[in-house]
Design a protein around this nucleic acid. Sequence first.
DNA 1: TTGTATGCGTTATCAT
DNA 2: ATGATAACGCATACAA
Lengths: 345, 345
Amino acid sequence: MTSSQSQRRRAPTIFDVAAEAGVSKSTVSNVLQGKVPVLAVTRQRVLDAMDQLGYEPNAGARYMRQRSRILGVVVGDLQNPFYAELAAEIEESAAKRNHTILLATTGDVPEREVERVRTLVQHRVAAMIFLCIPGKAALRAVGGDVPSLFAAVPMRDELSIAVDSRAAAELAVSHLVELGHTAIGFVSVTLHEPPTETVRFDGYRRAIQQAGLKVGASRVLRADGRGPHLSAYQAELKAFLSRKRRPTAIVAATDFDALEVISAADALGMRVPSDLSVVGFDNISLAGHSRISLTTISQPLAEIAKLAVDAAIDGTPHKRRRAARSIKLRPELIVRASTGPVRLG
Amino acid sequence: MTSSQSQRRRAPTIFDVAAEAGVSKSTVSNVLQGKVPVLAVTRQRVLDAMDQLGYEPNAGARYMRQRSRILGVVVGDLQNPFYAELAAEIEESAAKRNHTILLATTGDVPEREVERVRTLVQHRVAAMIFLCIPGKAALRAVGGDVPSLFAAVPMRDELSIAVDSRAAAELAVSHLVELGHTAIGFVSVTLHEPPTETVRFDGYRRAIQQAGLKVGASRVLRADGRGPHLSAYQAELKAFLSRKRRPTAIVAATDFDALEVISAADALGMRVPSDLSVVGFDNISLAGHSRISLTTISQPLAEIAKLAVDAAIDGTPHKRRRAARSIKLRPELIVRASTGPVRLG
DNA sequence: TTGTATGCGTTATCAT
DNA sequence: ATGATAACGCATACAA
């Protein structure tokens, strides 16, 4: 309205506002900060001048004197609905606390990780929230000056806010045991993050042993593979499900994996859950769809996001205590139609 | 390793580097910029000093003199896999061009839009990429100084990079016509963005007329509703599908809507595609899952992302020509198992 | 309550 | 090829 000119003018500064309002820059700054009392009329004049000129403070310049209000968010795979949803929640929580997020995706490629982390550091983010497990180099690139924490991923010796994956696995396994299953397998084919995968497998293993069952190698399929070779996964999965001593129930490392398992079962003409029970992990929103109806472990997304943002903003006093301040949240089992009693015979 | 101290030190500056290398700040800046020639040995000394100190340039300070390398990305609904995937692609394209993205989600709430846009403006983003249709107020908040464009959403009179939705609708309709359908309906229940919804419905309507068919009011279900009242949607959908003169095929405004339609059909015991054919829109990654296998319209995500980022960075010379420079991409029909020949009778 | 002076980290202009 | 210096927009300590 005011200015349809396309020549990009210099944005109005605090100085312009001061001139327009007939006061000094300090006064403008004072009404901006709200710390120092300013006469009501003066204040109003400044405010008027501001939206007269369409003034917006320059965050970059501000951050040279103040703590930045940007949070760096590093996500491995934003294509995965779980991380996308989590990122959305984090953004919202951050906004509630007047912070913005600088988003970086790495595709879990080590070299890219370092590059992206460095970019975030250069922008002097107040803190770094990882939605992935970065490599050593990336972690080093963060440096000791910017606090970082890990959301929804397990990270030993660091501040991490995640679900207790052992408890989660126990939930899944005991649910299956209650349904009469004894041949309970584990599948992870699409999870690019070794540590997360390991923790979940470990939880599965412990839960199995705790239930007095055995962890048969023939019931476990773990692909350390790179890249999403969907067709290859399917081939492996079909072979896996066709084995003689195949499991009657499967704990999948993620809902994505569970979906792949279901696809393979469908292709083999196996029925879920009567021929094969499947439990997922993450409770992505599509897990509840009638065509999927996946029994799965749910993580309290909003809570994780809020805690992560709060911790990122409020900081962790002593580095050494980071791990100690880690938070393990309680997972929840969502029972849907992908699990059922074991078929006798 | 180097510094395990938790007291947050002042990050090393260009000045510190200069001191360490025994040169002036100007020289350091020169090697940083690479524009002015610097003696090889000096250059190396500076470089050494840099990673000795773990120096990273302060992007905020830099942006006070140079154009910022931040792109503001405003997305309405990041929970929607389509937008999450698009955001990921945009981030990647931006990174390739040494840019970072500041992400804001609005949940399509007008007041939040303005607030978020203002935050982005305050960070002096080089450009704004909208993955939603902002309200007037938000658009005004952008101001005339920061170029903005629209990716994957239709926006009249503005620079937009999206699929030709009329062509898309034609693709869907003619596919169904070829299968013998004449009672082809339209459903949109979860799309929060009126303009996008309107454009897609309009495309549907034109395509129907072009095919010599009629647009019966009884075959159209458009919910302008707010918020995701999934159960309510389901009730509406079931009632819709139970009508006497119900359609034999449905064009859904989004894959999400298509999934809801399928759920409703499942609940009513209707078979897809023998009782009801369904075409979606967006080709989200889960549309290809064996349990869904949704015939849908695909948008070239990566291409949209690249074009959007390039346009955002390289800019549009004259504001008036923005609309003229808009790009309409060709949609593609992905035929899967949710569509089939009309059942005779 | 308001104004003045200085510093923040960097780039850019001008000397040398 | 390198160094001194003035912006850049804002916050802050201090003076008035």
